[in-house]
């Protein structure tokens, strides 16, 4: 196995959770998410030779994944007038799961539903916020200033909190 193959597999292994969440947030349904995942995996492989280490590997992966997801949605939205109906099928549930897990799952469903209400660009910020990325990492991924990340995130968090409270009541 050569260097490129080893680096690629390591990146996928270390960031599989983030990739899954990005696909969940930007994909319309299970099949669409799988297509998006395939597209991101392909783009990561093709872009890897151009990765020069000027950013952290995780930040670079985030950029590739987000750029691929956003570009894919743009292409589709330009082609299609109507937005596709979203299905909430990403988080598998088992009827026998204990209460705690069930509650956790419901929380996540509410959170994903609230994220779905955001604009594509804002979802990227929320994803990074939930993954506990620092402001400087978010700024590096998006190409904006840290100050603006703070301002923007403050507004988005406020909106998300309101929507989530509404859902709870």
């Amino acid at each position: 196995m050569d260097d490129r193959e080893q680096t690629y597999l390591r990146l996928i292994r270390e960031n599989r959770g983030q990739l899954r969440k990005i696909c969940r947030v930007y994909g319309d349904d299970a099949a669409d998410r799988e297509d998006l995942r395939q597209e991101i995996l392909l783009q990561l492989w093709r872009s890897l030779p151009s990765f020069r280490g000027d950013a952290d590997a995780g930040t670079w992966l985030y950029r590739v994944a987000l750029n691929t997801a956003l570009s894919r949605r743009r292409d589709r939205e330009t082609r299609e007038e109507a937005r596709l109906h979203r299905e909430d099928d990403a988080i598998p549930d088992a009827p026998s799961r204990p209460d705690r897990e069930h509650r956790e799952r419901e929380r996540l469903e509410r959170l994903y539903a609230a994220i779905d209400r955001l604009e594509d660009a804002d979802r990227a910020l929320v994803l990074m916020y939930l993954d506990e990325k620092s402001y400087s990492e978010m700024a590096e991924v998006l190409g904006i200033t840290e100050n603006y990340v703070g301002v923007r995130l403050h507004r988005i968090r406020k909106r998300l909190s309101t929507w989530l409270s509404e859902e709870e009541t």
Binding site: R16, R110, D131, E168
Partner: peptide, 24 residues
């Protein structure tokens, strides 16, 4: 429930290894 609590739930999911992921 605060957004931070939702964030804890977020971080707890999706990190389990892919059972069906064959790297080769």
């Amino acid at each position: 429930m605060t957004l931070e609590e939702y964030r804890d739930a977020w971080q707890g999911h999706g990190t389990d290894p892919d059972a069906d992921l064959d790297e080769e």
